[in-house]
């Protein structure tokens, strides 16, 4: 993503949004794994915690 921006293929804004979306997708994958492999209690906790982090990330990018 940052390489594409460096080459001028995409704008810095698009690259930033892409990187943040990537980071969020990554954390959401963790929540999914916690549900899938762990217990409900664990899944709920991890989802809430990483959900808050993701919402903050999205908000900052959109502002």
């Amino acid at each position: 993503m940052s390489r594409l921006a460096a080459e001028g293929t995409i704008s810095p804004e698009v690259a930033t949004t892409g990187i943040v979306i990537g980071a969020i997708a990554n954390t959401l994958t963790k929540a999914g794994l916690a549900w899938l492999i762990g217990t409900q209690q664990l899944g709920r906790r991890v989802t809430v915690a990483l959900g808050i982090v993701s919402v903050i990330g999205i908000t900052v990018v959109l502002l």
Partner: peptide, 26 residues
Amino acid sequence: VAVVNPSLLSAVVVPLGAMTVAGSFI
């Protein structure tokens, strides 16, 4: 990002920094 494209760092550091701080707090 700093390694691949340093010019992008100032833009990315805000959202990812906010996420790091919030995550650490949680």
